[in-house]
Design a protein around this nucleic acid. Structure first.
Lengths: 299, 299
DNA sequence: AGGCAGAACGAAAATGAATTTCGGATTTCA
DNA sequence: TGAAATCCGAAATTCATTTTCGTTCTGCCT
């Protein structure tokens, strides 16, 4: 029984990064190959080594070596990894491709959103998530802080997810309230705060205050930032910011997914209670609506 | 010059669907192959044809025929398409895999979110989006309606995206307000409404009222539903609902991305105005914060 | 039953793609 | 300038994939 061709466990974006000439490691001909591959990934994933070699004006062995240098175990391994990359991360390195048509905008936004999800998942610290889950599951009261549009959405969404599970939670989106709630928080309270930049100093101040008072805090934010430093448990999401000012940051998708993971695990932490409360909500909704069972929980 | 191996332009989910025995087209041995592939896609994408054949207890020619029947042009084409599918749509057909560990929950949520984005994008009616953009771009006032958690988030998010572009917009999340705003709307107003189920009858009623009064309406909802029927422009997002009651619907990601596309195109519809207002917001934020330019617009 | 059509499948041959080897050319650095 | 290292392609080799073809099985009609 022959052994299976071993694959280098790479992530799609790593291959793309390598293709964009990692620290000038590539030789002249290899650079030409990289350019060819990047210019038409669909072609590259379907073509044979001889075709690619001919098109780039190099010999097949050069292509093989090129693949190895990129971290793949063989040419076919390279193709498989490239195929994976064509969907996620396609436009990752293109320096803000100028999208103008509706189709381009749609593709770009969807791709970036998927990228964000992918990267978040890859770097998610599950230990931190589980610590956060433990804190929330046994909290007597949860406050969700987040202001300024994106983080406000996250805080509100956490409330929306957790009240269904029988968790006592309140969300608030303004700094004044954050400060007062922090000052008033009793033992048994857990405070969750979201900050996309991590540089929301008012939030960091609240966390500092809470730490001094022995109230545990959870931050969903960038690592290494003031907010992250001030929190007890940090669920870090570090993603590059897009530079298109006309567009919302795709990081929202990553934050939202991280939140879903957190909420789902909280639900699992006390399944009976969650199921009981959810059932109650559903009954009310059905009674209020037209009795259609297909109605989901919360339109 | 040999011609490039032509690929059947399939979408990832189509291959997965075919693998799950499309209408019993597969023979006994082929079914065994499909099972093997589905049970371990990672193995299948990396193994050679002889390895797979041996593992399934069939001959290599059978594998080749199997691939062709699935709509691929060759075994390597099959592998490439499979590689694409392994990331998006992996768990698409698995009947609600029971996830319990944190890692499983995380992977499942991220995968489903990406799936939702993928499917939304595939079926997005760009014409409808562009009609919606045209309406919003020249509206004197926009109302965003959405209630019940998920749609409330969408309505608020639309406000959050559009006010930055200098669009006059108000979001509201309660039926009473919706009705009053609809009754009071003046010509020049455009109403946007979100409903995940499409069965929000109060919203449909508002749309009906608005239609009678000549106020254009835009719905982000399921097609063929009361809300969709009542709206002038329908941006349809039709996705299967998950059956895990402990989890938020992944459809939110699709709705959010559709919203981003819409908002981005609105921004492009009047770039100078958008840029001017955005710049103004940014200046205020920087002045208010610590002057750090890295601060994004709205934490 | 008998026999025929057609599909399914594998063995073996044929094809051709990918890799390895090896030697020549070029660059780099002392 | 010389030596070592690197780069690269031609040719050979290996091995995967496909095609061909014959056998077997199944289903259907007479």
């Amino acid at each position: 029984m022959t052994a299976i061709t071993e694959t280098t466990a790479q992530t799609p974006t790593e291959l793309i990064a390598a293709l964009s000439d990692e620290e000038g490691r590539l030789s002249a001909l290899e650079k030409r190959l990289a350019e060819l591959v990047l210019s038409d990934m669909t072609y590259a994933t379907n073509a044979s080594i001889t075709e690619i070699a001919a098109k780039a004006g190099v010999s097949p062995p050069t292509v093989t070596r090129f693949c190895r240098r990129l971290g793949c175990s063989s040419f076919s391994d390279f193709k498989v990894q490239l195929a994976r990359s064509t969907y996620v991360g396609l436009r990752y390195l293109k320096p803000e491709s100028v999208t103008s048509t509706a189709a381009e905008v749609a593709e770009d936004i969807v791709t970036k959103a998927q990228n964000a999800l992918f990267e978040m998942h890859r770097n998610l610290d599950l230990d931190a998530v589980e610590r956060a889950v433990a804190l929330i599951a046994k909290a007597e009261m949860v406050h969700a802080f987040g202001s300024g549009g994106n983080s406000a959405m996250i805080a509100n969404e956490l409330q929306n997810r957790l009240f269904r599970l029988g968790i006592r939670i309140s969300a608030s989106n303004d700094h004044g309230m954050h400060l007062m709630l922090s000052a008033a928080a009793e033992p048994g309270t857990v405070v969750f705060g979201s900050s996309f930049t991590g540089r929301n100093h008012e939030l960091a101040r609240c966390f500092g205050l809470l730490r001094a008072r022995g109230i545990p805090t959870i931050a969903l934010t960038q690592s290494g930032t003031p907010v992250a430093e001030a929190a007890d448990v940090v669920i870090a999401v570090d993603l590059p910011e897009g530079r298109n000012i006309f567009r919302a940051t795709s990081t929202r998708f990553a934050f939202l997914a991280a939140l879903d993971i957190l909420a789902n695990l909280v639900a699992y932490a006390d399944k009976p209670r969650s199921a009981r409360v959810l059932r109650g909500i559903k009954e009310q909704l059905i009674r209020h609506r037209d009795g259609d069972d297909r109605q989901v929980l919360g339109d």
